[in-house]
Design a protein around this nucleic acid. Structure first.
Lengths: 217, 217
DNA sequence: CGGTCAGTTGATGGAGTTCAAACATTGTGG
DNA sequence: CCACAATGTTTGAACTCCATCAACTGACCG
């Protein structure tokens, strides 16, 4: 079965879809290296096995927008355009499985059910993207970070989790300055909303406080 | 052929797709009335014949986010979820064709090529949504309005066009206060970038000035 | 021990929100 | 036809949140 594992991008799990493809390759990436880059031919798509990857768009004036983070199990780079419109960069060392786009095309034509599932998945990604759009508008820095922490907890399936990405990455994802992210972190810790005994090792202490003002997220 | 007519949402034209469906119904809506509402069963989808429709999400604290505007020819309400996740409201009196979702499902299963096209369309919508996300972050009020005006010109196919929506609608679309939108409008008129002889009748005078700083949109 | 890089904290300024009031436009009913 | 209300637009003034600039800390590494 196809399965969406996050509300921030289209993804699916290995079972049921990806394993049907012939001859996937196992790829290693080092932290900071690109998986694919904007403008590159979209010949391949990938499933993340381990590590963490960010989906990046550079904007004029040198600003960087991170459109999504991928965790193990997530699918990335599946595009219908000929070229990738975003870059994907490894945040930590990681491993990916690499599949050929045209194998998916063939399967879609041969197997309508598969095509339907892929369509469903992409449509879910679309409404998730809208959801993130809504979140970035008219929400305070604290609300944005609250949502982010709750989402990371949900994705990792625990109130304890490790953030693989830096404060700067979080900032570029939420549309904030990294100083602001840092400030909100300290504020949340001071108020006993979260704990961070070791850097980037986060525990949600007062979930209710994070959920305040997020009714419509 | 399926065809995307805007970069802000997935759409397609009548020729080639929608006309294949059996027995569409012709629906009239009055200004301000909903076409469908959040939470409603997504039994139908629609093609706008005349008028203008906004796609709306309400957020806590009473704020409203407009995710997209639809113009004649655009498709709306095509969702893979069982329920609509957004509301669609008529801005002006208008006419829509209404189609049954399950007819599309049947066609997708029967005709893989159609499924592929629909998938392509949705994937385009996804990257457009990401693009809008990027636009809403780290861009000044003036840049956002500039982009909006250029997009409206592109969609209407002319440097002269009528805005069917109010300043408030534009503000909720761009993530700004309506006063700010109003201020930027006057600023653009003062500087001779646009002309607005009658309210909401806009002419782009200095396209270059609008395009400045939009390199990465 | 210097050097680099990520994170924190402080001070300052500015773009945009918010509150408020005037103005314009449209529609309604007497 | 006018008076009046309702709605949308413009403009002003004060404030606020966040970006920016800058300095400092701590960790890691040669």
């Amino acid at each position: 079965m196809l399965q969406a594992t996050s509300d921030a991008q289209y993804r699916f799990h290995a079972q049921g879809v990806v394993h049907r493809f012939p001859s996937p390759e196992r790829i290693k990436v080092r932290a900071g290296e690109p998986v694919f880059e904007e403008g590159e031919s979209a010949e391949y798509f990938y499933k993340l096995v381990s590590g963490c990857v960010r989906l990046v768009k550079w904007v004029a004036s040198g600003h960087r927008q991170i459109c999504d983070f991928y965790l193990p199990g997530d699918l990335l780079g599946f595009s219908n355009a000929d070229e990738h419109e975003f870059s994907a960069e490894a945040i930590e060392d990681g491993v990916l499985m690499r599949y050929r786009r045209r194998d998916a095309d063939r399967l879609m034509k041969a197997d309508p059910a598969f095509a339907c599932e892929l369509q469903t998945l992409t449509a879910q990604g679309l409404s998730s993207a809208y959801a993130h759009m809504v979140r970035l508008c008219h929400r305070s820095a604290r609300d944005r970070l609250s949502w982010f922490l709750l989402d990371m907890a949900r994705r990792s399936g625990s109130e304890w989790f490790t953030l693989p990405m830096s404060r700067v990455d979080v900032a570029d994802y939420l549309g904030l300055a990294h100083e602001t992210v840092s400030r909100v972190f300290t504020q949340l810790k001071k108020h006993g909303v979260i704990a961070e005994p070791k850097l980037n090792h986060v525990r949600i202490v007062n979930r209710g406080a994070l959920e305040d003002g997020l009714l419509a997220a």
